[in-house]
Simulated scan of single mutants.
Amino acid sequence: MPEMTIEAVNQAELPKLCNLFNLARVKNGCFPDETFEMAEFAQVIEGERLFVSRIANKITGFASVWEPDNFLHHLYVSPQYQRQGVGSALLDYCVNLFGLPMTLKCIKANVAACDFYEKHGWHIAEKAEGPEGKYFLYIRET
């Protein structure tokens, strides 16, 4: 596989990230059957620092961090690049850049994502329910 790069997102790429966001959520099946228009997506990521992964200049995933709380708000990988190290690379990049402790939320029904985070050293700090259903608040401290 060609080398992967991760860098801050270029604002012109936001429509591509919106498409990836919608595709990954629909394909996952754990989210409500809704897609986000660009204006809605812009609101969801407002004020966050976004990073994009690329392989052979193709966007393969993205992550966003709400820096004031050191909260990983989004981590999405294009379905065709899942289970190829993209999510792990994005996760490691954010942890290395922002440091620990860091938190994130994951919908309980998204078992694959919960397993992914736990495999990477995150543990459940809280169980709660939100608009998208029951979720876990994960924390990684070391």
Rank of each mutant, 00 (worst) to 15 (best):
M1H: 00
M4H: 05
T5A: 14
I6R: 12
I6D: 12
E7T: 13
N10C: 11
Q11D: 15
Q11N: 14
E13G: 11
L14V: 06
L14W: 03
P15H: 04
P15C: 12
P15Q: 12
P15Y: 00
K16A: 11
L17R: 08
C18F: 11
N19G: 14
N19D: 14
L20M: 10
L20D: 02
F21R: 04
F21T: 07
N22F: 00
L23Y: 01
V26D: 11
K27D: 07
K27S: 08
K27C: 11
C30L: 04
D33F: 06
E34D: 09
E34C: 02
F36N: 09
E37G: 05
Q43Y: 03
I45D: 02
E46K: 12
E46P: 06
E46Q: 10
E48Y: 02
E48I: 01
R49M: 12
V52N: 10
R54K: 10
I55Y: 05
I55W: 06
A56S: 12
N57L: 05
I59W: 08
T60K: 01
T60F: 01
G61N: 08
F62Y: 05
F62S: 07
W66G: 06
W66N: 13
P68Q: 07
P68N: 09
D69K: 00
L72K: 00
L72A: 05
H73Y: 10
Y76D: 01
V77N: 13
S78R: 00
S78W: 01
Q80P: 05
Q80F: 03
Q80L: 14
Y81A: 09
Y81T: 03
Q84R: 15
G87D: 14
G87F: 04
L91M: 11
L91H: 04
D92N: 13
D92L: 03
Y93Q: 09
C94S: 10
V95R: 00
V95L: 04
V95T: 05
V95W: 00
N96S: 13
N96C: 14
F98E: 12
G99I: 02
P101L: 15
P101W: 06
M102V: 05
M102W: 03
M102T: 07
M102P: 12
T103K: 08
I107T: 09
K108I: 14
K108S: 07
N110M: 15
A112W: 00
A112F: 01
A112S: 06
C114F: 03
D115K: 06
Y117A: 09
H120A: 10
H120D: 10
G121A: 07
G121N: 03
G121I: 05
W122H: 02
H123I: 13
I124D: 03
A125F: 02
E126C: 08
E129R: 08
P131T: 14
P131A: 13
E132S: 03
E132G: 09
G133P: 09
F136V: 07
Y138D: 12
R140C: 12
R140W: 06
R140G: 08
E141Y: 04
